[in-house]
């Protein structure tokens, strides 16, 4: 993709500082990275690489000296760290130096006394404040919430999800934090979250999925929306390798392929 040239007929971007993801293909698609302070929905069905992409985003940030925070709702941090160890790009010293911080949200619920099965408006306000306080105390430049869907199971109502995201987004943007919100969605057209309100609030949507070619399944990535930058809207095939996530154009062959 790269930066648009002077001859580019698309509307001119106001240059914004970038949060370089360190994932070469993704930075290329985004013309240099995610605009700093953006809150981005990383949506896709199970097994499409959402958590791995998020972790790589944080590790590369930590390597660049940016504080990176992973808020885990479902999976225990120690298990995530164990999985990370199989990747060559991961360095344990990033955790020791507190550049890469993992927090289990269920522990936070417990400490805050959030024991209602469905969080009340007050519970949500308390949780939002606590998350923002944590982000500020860590000095996080990058945050991942994995997953918004799991958190949504406890917030439940659409309007509360929307309010939670608006407040969180405003707070994180004020702190200059670039955020990935992981959203688990069933493969379907035109919807990127379980409640359907999340995509309207976020600054960007990165969609992961599976594409079938004559019965063979390829992992694909597409940037559907990203405020503050021109970006490719093409679909890319991605591969999770020990060196990190790699991407290649999704071949169309003039739509000659089946499936």
């Amino acid at each position: 993709m790269g930066r648009p040239s002077n001859a580019d007929p698309s509307p001119k971007d106001v240059p914004r500082e970038r949060c370089v993801t360190g994932i070469e293909g993704l930075d290329h698609i985004l013309g240099g990275g995610i605009p700093k302070g953006n809150m981005v929905l990383l949506a896709g069905p199970v097994g499409t690489g959402k958590t791995t992409l998020s972790l790589e985003f944080l590790v590369h940030g930590a390597e660049r000296g940016e504080s990176s925070l992973f808020l885990s709702v479902t999976e225990a941090s120690n298990k995530l760290i164990e999985n990370l160890s199989s990747f060559d790009f991961f360095r344990k010293d990033l955790i020791k130096s507190n550049k890469l911080v993992f927090v289990d949200l269920p522990i936070m619920y417990e400490r805050l006394g959030l024991d209602h099965e469905e969080l009340t408006v007050e519970d949500i306000e308390l949780l939002t404040r606590s998350v923002l306080d944590l982000v500020e105390s860590v000095g996080a430049d990058r945050v991942v919430l994995d997953s918004l869907t799991s958190l949504g199971y406890r917030i439940r109502r659409d309007e509360r999800i929307r309010d939670f995201m608006l407040t969180l987004g405003q707070g994180l943007s004020r702190l200059g934090t670039t955020t990935l919100l992981v959203s688990e969605v069933a493969p379907m057209e035109g919807r990127y979250s379980s409640h359907g309100v999340e995509e309207a609030v976020v600054d960007g949507i990165i969609l992961l999925g599976n594409a079938s070619r004559q019965g063979d399944i390829l992992r694909v990535l597409q940037v559907v929306k990203m405020r503050g930058t021109a970006h490719s809207r093409s679909q890319y095939v991605m591969e999770l390798t020990p060196l990190g996530l790699l991407m290649a154009p999704h071949l169309k062959g003039n739509r000659a392929q089946g499936g």
Partner: peptide, 20 residues
């Protein structure tokens, strides 16, 4: 690679080996 139809995967594995 599971299948010679996964052409993009061939590209990506080549890329992986180049970097490795």
């Amino acid at each position: 690679i599971e299948s010679p139809r996964m052409l993009e995967t061939i590209m990506l594995r080549v890329e992986y080996l180049l970097r490795l």
